[in-house]
Simulated scan of single mutants.
Amino acid sequence: MKLFYCGRCANLLYFENSCCTSCGTALGFDPGAMDLLAVDPQGQDTWVSVGGAGQYRLCANYKNQGACNWLVPASDDHDYCVACRLNRTIPDLGVTSHYGLWHRLEKEKRRLVYALLRLGLPCAPRQEEQAGLAFDFLADQPARFDERSRVLTGHAQGVITLNIAEADPVERERMRGQMVEPYRTVLGHFRHESGHYYWDQLVRNSTWLAPVRDLFGDDTRDYRQALDQHYQQGPPAQWQNDYISAYASSHAWEDWAETWAHYLHMVDTLETAWQFGLRVQARHEADVSVAADPDFDPYQATCFDELIKHWLPLTLALNSLNRSMGHDFAYPFVLADRVVEKLRLVHRIIHNG
């Protein structure tokens, strides 16, 4: 994630900020400029960027719900920003607990959309394009007590469904333990499910399908049967030699989605490290610096080896820092050679697809 600065006082900002914590100026993210702008009201629902000529409106979810901080160009007829227009269904906000959970989902969804825009990937709303993307944020039905009442997170024909309970850290930790997962985050869900969507957009019926099958396996294998086998028997022995996670071993589609999500983890974290000017140089090793080249932008890197060169020492440092604070590894993954080749192929498809 980029670093942002207030256009009025130059204070450092976070991507989620809606006002500057130093001078109080209102802020809004312009997805066209990929920048968090300081804006002033001009009346009649119009805002102008400080020090610029851009005119905007606040996204309806910004203005009415406080669930967004993105802007809509004044020349755009849409009420919602490009991220909020992806929503097909939001939770019933008449239920008090839903409001906070939905806000957390929206915050992580905007991080996903930021990455998709930075990578130049298609993410048009499904309501505007037949092959577009849509999100359903749904809640379990408490009146029923069987498993059929549970909302299952997943993807189907361009629609990503997320159970809003995933935004509850207590529930998410319970599920992480139940599923024996070392890593489970809301942003991870968004990135994983988007992988299924981009399989359809970039791989299925394309010239990439054959090389993807060579690395990820047979996607024509019965999906439901494969998942049932995975949950009943667990992953194969030594799965770490071929897969980024145990779940990735269940089916080629899940291997692709897990690897896709991991690639998005990599480029976003590397951009943050680059923006902060982080260097990692172990005392007894050669220079293994992060972002040694000041022009290194991981989202625009054409050479995958450049990403790996910076990624491995950075994650080693992250894990060491976390352990020093008494926490588990921040990065509980091992990148075997075959996994690196899968990530390399994802990189090629994104940049050449």
Rank of each mutant, 00 (worst) to 15 (best):
L3K: 15
C9W: 09
L12M: 06
C20H: 00
C20S: 07
T25K: 09
T25S: 15
A26G: 06
M34P: 02
L37S: 04
D40T: 13
P41K: 11
G52D: 14
Y56W: 15
R57D: 05
A60N: 11
N61L: 09
N61A: 11
Y62T: 02
N69L: 03
A74E: 12
D76E: 14
D77R: 14
D79G: 12
A83T: 12
R85S: 03
L86S: 08
I90D: 11
D92Y: 01
G94Q: 14
G100S: 15
L101P: 04
H103N: 11
R104M: 04
E108A: 13
R111F: 11
V113S: 00
L116P: 04
P122D: 14
R126D: 03
G132S: 01
L133V: 01
A134H: 01
A143K: 10
F145Y: 13
D146G: 08
D146S: 09
S149C: 09
S149N: 06
H155A: 07
Q157I: 09
T161S: 10
R174C: 02
E181D: 15
E181R: 15
R184A: 05
R184M: 11
G188C: 06
H192C: 01
Y198I: 00
Q201F: 00
Q201R: 13
N205F: 11
L209M: 10
D219Y: 12
T220F: 04
Q225E: 15
N241C: 07
E254T: 09
W256N: 05
W260L: 02
H262A: 04
Y263L: 09
T272M: 14
Q275G: 04
A282S: 09
E285W: 11
D287P: 00
V288Y: 07
S289C: 09
A291M: 04
A292R: 13
P294C: 03
P298E: 00
A301Q: 06
C303H: 10
F304A: 03
E306H: 10
E306M: 10
H310R: 14
L312E: 13
T315D: 03
T315Q: 14
L316R: 15
L321C: 03
M325P: 00
P332D: 08
A336P: 04
D337N: 14
V339S: 12
L343A: 09
R348F: 01
I349T: 00
I349A: 05
H351K: 10
G353H: 03
